[in-house]
Amino acid sequence: MRLLQRLRQKLPQHKYAIDTKMLGDAATLAWSNLGLWSSQAQTYVEACEQLAAHLAQSIQLSAQDCLLDLGCGHGASLQYWAQHYAVQHIEAVEIQTACIEKIQQQALACVRELHQCSFMNLNAANFAQKFDAIVCLDALYHYDLHQFIPQIPTLLKPQGRIAFHTLQLSENWSNAHFLSQQRDQYLLKLADVQLKHLMSQAQLQQLLEQQGFKQIQIQILSEPVLAGFADYVQRQPQFHGFQQDLNALKIQMTGKLCQQLRQSHRIDYVQVSATLA
């Protein structure tokens, strides 16, 4: 029984949970994304903030916006929107109970409501009002965009904006060998990403247009995100060699997956922004 208890303590609390201290952020409201790595991003926290800023700038996030943050994690993004963009009305969706409880304990003035639910269950009736902007920072590749995108127009005000990150099939995908595609499918499944849910840029653009979106911008960020995170993990000695700690193993394997995706050039990491017509 004691052995079982110790094993349970080492297991992540949720399939999306990650040890943020081990990643490089010891704050209570910590970051837990892949980050956008550049010459200005020397630390993990700086890279995470750059990814958030890049997303916010794509929809010109402002203090007047009523914002919905999907998959807010430990809450670092909520604090960031308030401090750097002066957003005063934020609602957030997060599926992890531990994250919800941690954010509630901090009692952020900007956070009006926390919703614990899946991205696939965004019922407009659960929200008090519609939003000027919706953001999803480094999380949507775990979900089927064919089911996710049709929910969004009912949550947005006219001319409302959405911005998110996801993975898409590159131009090289159709020419790849069958065995290479099968390997990608297996590796992605280990990270809870279903290959069948990924689409090409043209397909993603068409899906957004069918749901009434315009001013669609799709930017490939594979190099600064995938390659950047893989390089960061590789430079951290605690992630070298065989890992007994499951949290360290999870980070190590995520870094290797990012490296594989970037080197194969078959699947791209993208930032998407659009405005509701």
Rank of each mutant, 00 (worst) to 15 (best):
6 R>G: 00
10 K>L: 12
10 K>F: 10
12 P>K: 07
14 H>S: 14
22 M>Y: 07
23 L>E: 08
24 G>S: 11
25 D>K: 02
25 D>H: 04
26 A>F: 02
31 W>S: 08
32 S>L: 11
33 N>K: 00
36 L>H: 12
39 S>L: 14
40 Q>C: 05
44 Y>D: 06
47 A>L: 04
47 A>G: 05
51 L>Y: 00
52 A>W: 00
54 H>Q: 07
56 A>T: 07
57 Q>H: 09
60 Q>G: 07
63 A>W: 08
64 Q>G: 07
66 C>K: 09
66 C>T: 13
67 L>T: 08
69 D>V: 09
69 D>F: 01
70 L>S: 04
71 G>D: 04
73 G>E: 01
79 Q>K: 10
80 Y>T: 00
84 H>W: 11
85 Y>Q: 09
86 A>G: 01
86 A>F: 14
88 Q>T: 12
91 E>A: 06
93 V>Y: 01
93 V>P: 02
97 T>A: 11
100 I>L: 12
101 E>R: 12
103 I>Y: 03
103 I>M: 05
104 Q>G: 03
108 L>Q: 13
110 C>F: 02
113 E>M: 15
118 S>G: 05
121 N>A: 12
122 L>I: 08
123 N>L: 08
128 A>V: 13
133 A>Q: 13
134 I>R: 09
136 C>S: 14
139 A>Q: 00
140 L>K: 02
142 H>N: 04
142 H>R: 11
151 Q>L: 12
151 Q>F: 07
152 I>T: 14
157 K>G: 10
158 P>M: 06
161 R>Q: 15
164 F>P: 02
164 F>V: 01
164 F>H: 03
167 L>S: 04
175 N>E: 15
176 A>C: 14
176 A>T: 12
176 A>M: 13
177 H>W: 09
178 F>E: 15
179 L>H: 09
183 R>C: 11
184 D>R: 06
190 L>T: 03
193 V>H: 05
194 Q>P: 06
195 L>G: 03
203 Q>V: 00
207 L>E: 08
209 E>A: 14
209 E>L: 11
214 K>C: 09
221 L>C: 07
222 S>I: 05
224 P>I: 05
227 A>Q: 13
230 A>T: 09
231 D>M: 03
236 Q>Y: 01
238 Q>T: 01
239 F>W: 04
239 F>P: 01
242 F>S: 03
242 F>V: 14
244 Q>R: 10
244 Q>W: 14
248 A>C: 05
252 Q>A: 10
253 M>C: 06
253 M>F: 03
254 T>W: 03
258 C>P: 01
262 R>V: 01
263 Q>R: 11
263 Q>F: 06
263 Q>K: 15
268 D>W: 09
270 V>T: 02
271 Q>F: 00
275 T>I: 13
275 T>P: 08
